[in-house]
């Protein structure tokens, strides 16, 4: 059976209520089309994770699809604190999510351990801080502090993470799911490979021969991939290197909307619930802001240096 499906099919088939979901992206290549579809399908009680979360996690928390968050950070960057995240934690709106706090070293290492089949991994951070004093749903399994069996020094162990499913957005993939990226990686590669299965959203589907012209760019091999969705502008309002820039003006729009519950709900209705899919989203964007603003987001063109793999 072919893996190339619509986002609607991919999310319906492969993301279940209560799943632990790794969502790749680091402003760079955020799988926003998938996130909107998760919200449209009203998934329930998800546990979400990634290092340095932003508006993508904030919108899921505000939409009520999240129960738990294995976190390192969540903010809207230049637009300040995550409004929905704050409302959730401070006021329980729409619900109080549970947060397990890690860092941008320990969480990627937990995913690395997961991707390697290791049960846990030692890390050198978090020691001496309140990050060790707060435990949520992982309880005593958040970490173990031991004396190293090698030199007796205090050593922090954190558990491997194996998400039920990873969702990543990449520049290109073939129909089997060999997925290629370039540019800032964040924890995308370890997060995807730690997961039991991967949904690949991509700017373009290319043939297997194109993948083979620069195979070092592949971060996930096809056998881990269960669905491939061709979704141009799938990371908007985030960016995809070589394709389009961050939409800072849209970031401001989200900040303003999410300042209040009403504004946030109006935003969800306009940009998620009343929208059929990413094509409709782009059409709505162009209708709302004009084609020239859409065009301005597109990346200038400049090839990298072509390399030879021949022998």
């Amino acid at each position: 059976m072919g893996k190339v499906v619509t986002m609607k099919q991919a999310i319906a088939s492969h993301v279940n209520d209560e799943d632990l979901v790794f969502i790749g992206g680091y402003i760079c290549r955020t799988p926003f089309a998938a996130i909107h579809e998760i919200i449209r399908q009203k998934k329930k009680d998800l546990t979400i994770t990634r290092s340095n979360a932003a508006d993508d996690f904030d919108i899921m928390i505000g939409a009520g699809v999240v129960r738990r968050f294995i976190s390192t950070f969540l903010s809207l960057g230049v637009y300040g604190l995550g409004r929905c995240y704050r409302r959730s934690i401070e006021k329980g709106i729409p619900r109080r999510i549970e947060v397990e706090e890690y860092t941008n070293l320990s969480l990627p290492m937990m995913l690395l351990a997961g991707s390697m089949g290791m049960p846990f991994v030692p890390v050198k951070d978090m020691l001496g801080t309140d990050l060790l004093n707060v435990k949520a749903f992982m309880g005593e399994n958040k970490y173990k502090l031991i004396d190293s069996p090698f030199d007796g020094k205090p050593t922090l162990l954190v558990p491997a993470l194996n998400p039920d499913v990873a969702i990543i957005h990449v520049q290109q993939a073939d129909e089997d799911g060999n997925a290629q990226i370039w540019g800032i990686g964040g924890d995308c590669k370890v997060g995807a490979n730690a997961a039991k299965k991967v949904i690949v959203s991509c700017e373009r589907i290319v043939d297997r021969e194109t993948i083979g012209r620069d195979p070092s760019r592949t971060i996930v091999p096809s056998f881990k991939v269960v669905a491939v969705v061709e979704e141009p502008y799938g990371a908007h309002p985030g960016y995809t290197p070589g394709f389009y820039d961050v939409d800072f003006a849209f970031g401001a729009l989200y900040q303003k909307a999410s300042n209040t519950v009403e504004g946030f709900n109006d935003f969800l209705k306009e940009w998620v619930f009343d929208i059929e899919d990413r094509t409709a989203y782009i059409q709505h964007y162009i209708q709302s802001f004009g084609y020239s603003r859409f065009k301005e987001l597109q990346a200038r063109f400049g090839y990298g240096y072509p390399v030879s793999y021949e022998y």
């Binding site: 290092s51 340095n52 976190s71 390192t72 950070f73 969540l74 903010s75 604190l81 995550g82 995240y85 704050r86 934690i89 401070e90 706090e101 890690y102 860092t103 941008n104 070293l105 320990s106 050198k124 951070d125 978090m126 020691l127 801080t129 309140d130 990050l131 707060v134």
Partner: peptide, 21 residues
Amino acid sequence: DYNKPKSRLPGSGGANPIGSL
């Protein structure tokens, strides 16, 4: 208070490992 926060801030991100190491 962590469990009854006046203001929830972003969290560690890379700060803790940078400050540790």
